[in-house]
């Protein structure tokens, strides 16, 4: 048995119970409905999910012998990556595409202490080419940012 393998099923069971609670709070619809209501499907999925997760937990427990946990966490680099993605998403909301992307790319290169000049050139070229192509070829207006826009 690996304790690590119990984590997701347990979280899912808790989530499913929350779902079952929320579906009981659904408002009544304004208009006629079929014989099964809005809550039927989410309820069915939540109940199935609980059964599946219980089966997973039982199966894991039957394996006996507790083994050590390892490899479940984020390492230094993936943790940086996670923070990086989240901050980039926030930055693009605040400052728009151009500033955020260039800045994020530079931060990334600094983090890895890159000394390759070409990488920095790539950052600049990539940012501007993507901007140009999206606006002028794909007709997608990239975010302008809530502060700078």
């Amino acid at each position: 048995m690996k304790v690590k393998n119990l984590f997701v099923p347990i979280v899912m069971i808790i989530l499913s119970v929350i779902v079952l609670f929320l579906t009981s709070q659904f408002p009544t619809p304004l208009y006629q409905d079929s014989s099964i209501s809005s809550s039927f499907f989410p309820n069915a999925v939540a109940v199935l999910q609980i059964i599946i997760c219980l089966a997973l937990i039982v199966g894991e427990c039957l394996k006996g012998k507790v083994q050590s946990n390892q490899g479940a966490g984020f390492n230094k680099y993936s943790l940086f990556g996670a923070v990086f993605i989240v901050s980039y998403a926030v930055a693009i909301y605040l400052f728009g595409y151009l500033i955020s992307t260039l800045l994020a790319f530079l931060v990334y290169l600094f983090f890895f202490r890159s000394k390759n000049v070409w990488y920095y050139v790539t950052a600049l070229v990539f940012t501007s080419v993507v901007y140009y192509v999206f606006t002028n070829v794909f007709y997608v207006v990239l975010p302008e940012g809530t502060i700078t826009g």
Binding site: M12, P27, S34, S38, P42, Q49, G59
Partner: peptide, 28 residues
């Protein structure tokens, strides 16, 4: 397969978020 089913249920549940497609009841 059980892990796959668990993942499938996550997808099914996520798909119910939003206005109910039949009677517009807001769900989650």
């Amino acid at each position: 397969i059980l892990k796959g089913l668990m993942a499938g249920m996550i997808g099914l549940l996520v798909s119910t978020i939003g206005l109910d497609p039949i009677n517009s009841v807001p769900r989650f």
